[in-house]
Simulated scan of single mutants.
Amino acid sequence: MTVTRMLCLLTCCLALAAFEAPARDYRFADAHVHYLDFFQESEGMDALFAAMDAAGVEHVMLSGIPVAKKWHEDEPKRPRYYAGDDAGAYWYSATDVFVAAAVKALPADRRRRMHPFLTGFNPADKNADAHIRRMLELDPGLWQGIGEVFTRHDDLTALTYGDVPRANNEALRRVYHLAAEYDLPVLLHANITSKRERNPLYLPEIEEALRNHPHVRFIWAHAGTSMEIHRHQEKLEFLRPTLARLLEDYPNLYIDLSWTVLRPYLLDAKGRPDPRWVELVERYPERFMLGSDVVGSFGSLGELIHDFRPFLDALPAPVARRVARDNFLAILPARGSADQR
């Protein structure tokens, strides 16, 4: 057999082995699930667990929605989403009561898979920390984080009654001190820019929070992106280098890679992983986590989580396992993560 034929045969064998290699069997933790929608309604726990079990999702972060959408007197049809019409939204604290009741009604084996976060407060109200403290004392040991905290949030910001919350305002500074006291991570929605500015317009707000509260573990929802931003700006070219700098400068920053980050950042138009993002996650293997960001209905949870598989497969297997599951559990307070390993 000639050398050329031997090389061809070896190449074919390697290609066949790669093709036949078994797919990685991931176990997932979903770091971004809303049990309720913008009308404070839900498909319920049975539907959520059915979606989780079908998708191999072992654990979820679970929160309500901190605002309720108003059905305005002049609107003939109830909107289906906060952006369905021009009616406003208002801060709604009972969302946490609904989540707590649903979680406490679960049997022990299911309850261990739920990691509830408090979200029912106005982030522009300096009474917010007092309210959160009361909720923590009302159900000791139940709550494992704070958020999703809505600050800069596309059109929802304009629709919500009251002052515009900022990630670095006085009310949230008080909340961050409380989070540090109780060792609670904070899931923060803070858009990095507006719909039309092609620069990190609002970055100083979240960077000040990171810098001034080093003992708080911040999870940045969607890495500061949103679908509404992408409708006006297909891709934020500054996002990846900005994240690289922030991750280097602030060890208390974690990134929620929920659906608005998947495309056009992690995967290109043909579904191929971007090697620059692969390298970034490899550089900070403990700082990224996945989230579906489903809102009150759970049929799409599995699809949204499994869409990340091509990106996970591009990572070294130990890093992929961390991103898929372990990083979220590791960020929880000790009582929420110790028995989940």
Rank of each mutant, 00 (worst) to 15 (best):
A83N: 10
P79W: 05
R111S: 12
R166K: 13
N191V: 03
H59Q: 13
N169H: 12
A100I: 03
D326E: 13
P107G: 13
W91A: 04
A29P: 10
L106P: 10
F218D: 04
N199T: 07
L14R: 09
G64C: 10
P165W: 11
M289I: 01
R272L: 08
P273I: 06
A221H: 09
A179P: 08
T119W: 02
R80M: 12
F288Q: 00
L201M: 14
L315I: 00
H230Q: 15
G291Y: 00
L253N: 01
A31G: 07
L236Q: 12
S226Q: 03
Y182S: 07
M289C: 06
A130N: 05
E205A: 15
G84M: 07
A209Y: 06
M6H: 08
I305S: 01
P66N: 09
V175N: 12
F311T: 01
A105H: 11
E234G: 14
E148A: 07
E58R: 14
F49C: 12
Q233A: 02
W277Y: 07
D109F: 04
L136G: 11
A324I: 02
R110L: 09
L9I: 07
Y35C: 06
V3P: 02
A51T: 12
V294F: 02
I206H: 05
P165L: 15
M1V: 09
R321Y: 00
Y250I: 02
I219C: 07
M114N: 14
L312A: 01
D25H: 11
Y82V: 03
L156R: 06
C12P: 01
M227K: 15
D46W: 13
V295W: 08
E181G: 08
R24E: 00
A89S: 15
A100S: 14
T260K: 10
R263D: 02
Y250W: 02
L201W: 09
D293H: 11
H232R: 03
E248I: 05
D307G: 03
P310C: 11
Q144H: 13
V67K: 04
E234Q: 08
E43R: 05
K195D: 13
G120R: 03
R24L: 05
A50W: 01
W91Q: 02
V99Y: 08
T11M: 05
D129C: 11
L142C: 13
I192M: 14
D53N: 11
E234P: 04
Y92M: 12
N327G: 07
A68E: 15
H306M: 06
A190W: 00
P316M: 04
M1P: 06
R276I: 02
P116M: 10
Y35L: 14
R24V: 00
V3W: 04
S42H: 01
L10Q: 11
M135F: 04
I146D: 09
P264Y: 11
Q144S: 15
N327D: 06
E228Y: 15
Q40L: 15
E148L: 08
Q40A: 09
R287P: 00
A190S: 15
A94P: 08
T11L: 11
